[in-house]
């Protein structure tokens, strides 16, 4: 590995750290405590550094592996979007931005010898990514950071030290929408007449073992209030 690669890694890591902090803080509508934002961003970067090093060492000597790896990741992500759409769990609307960011990045693998084309392809995702972040800011219930911040608020209001259930909890409330949201350890599926909330055991413990029924009802209400425009920031 030469000096250029090392500088690239340092620059990339710093850039990603700042981006992570800004994204988490603003996409959560400042619900996430700044201390938590820094802590989560640092942890993510610490995981990213060795992975990035491995990629740079391994893939720089073998273009085919890079292409295959990117192709597999691309198709797995697209397949999961299509699966959720076919199963009527979610609409494709918010995934369009995601796909439009991935496609140019994936296409770069085929034009590695043409720097003009790869430069153009590298810049195309930028406006799409910005549009996607604007979309997430405008509709924060799609953002895992806003959901996490809302959870922090709800946890201060619900009973703790309660039992865990490995099955999903159904909240019967007219929602009028169909989409999936959540964060790591929590999945919330909105259906027109109800919501289905599923929390992992690990996340339940990390949250102080909240009363699941109460928690599911409150998070549902919070999200409904937000997309009906009834709630303040």
């Amino acid at each position: 590995m030469n000096e250029d690669n090392i500088f690239f890694i340092i620059f990339f890591v710093l850039f990603m750290l700042i981006l992570q902090i800004l994204l988490r803080y603003f996409l959560s509508h400042r619900k996430l405590h700044i201390k938590k934002v820094f802590s989560q961003s640092f942890k993510q970067i610490l995981i990213m550094i060795p992975i990035l090093l491995v990629f740079m060492i391994f893939f720089s000597h073998n273009d085919w592996f890079s292409l295959i790896f990117t192709a597999v990741m691309f198709f797995l992500v697209i397949a999961s979007f299509i699966y959720n759409f076919v199963k009527k769990r979610d609409s494709m609307k918010r995934y369009i931005y995601f796909i439009l960011v991935y496609i140019p990045l994936f296409m770069m693998n085929f034009f590695q010898d043409n720097s003009a084309v790869t430069t153009i392809l590298a810049f195309i995702p930028l406006p799409m990514a910005i549009l996607y972040f604007v979309f997430l800011y405008r509709y924060p219930f799609y953002s895992q950071y806003w959901v996490e911040g809302s959870i922090d608020e709800i946890l201060s209001q619900v009973e703790k030290g309660c039992g865990y259930s490995p099955k999903p909890i159904t909240v019967f409330k007219s929602t009028g929408k169909r989409f999936i949201t959540g964060c790591r350890g929590l999945k919330i599926m909105f259906r027109e007449e109800k919501t289905i909330v599923r929390m992992s055991r690990k996340y339940h413990k990390a949250c102080g073992s909240p009363n699941l029924k109460e928690f599911a009802e409150r998070i549902t209400e919070k999200i409904i209030e937000r997309y009906r425009g009834e709630a303040d920031e």
Binding site: E159, C162, G163, Y164, I169, T170, N211, L212, K213, E214
Partner: peptide, 11 residues
């Protein structure tokens, strides 16, 4: 029936 059963510590 079991799907709709309320979780532990609920009413």
């Amino acid at each position: 029936f079991l799907w709709m059963l309320p979780p532990p510590d609920s009413d």
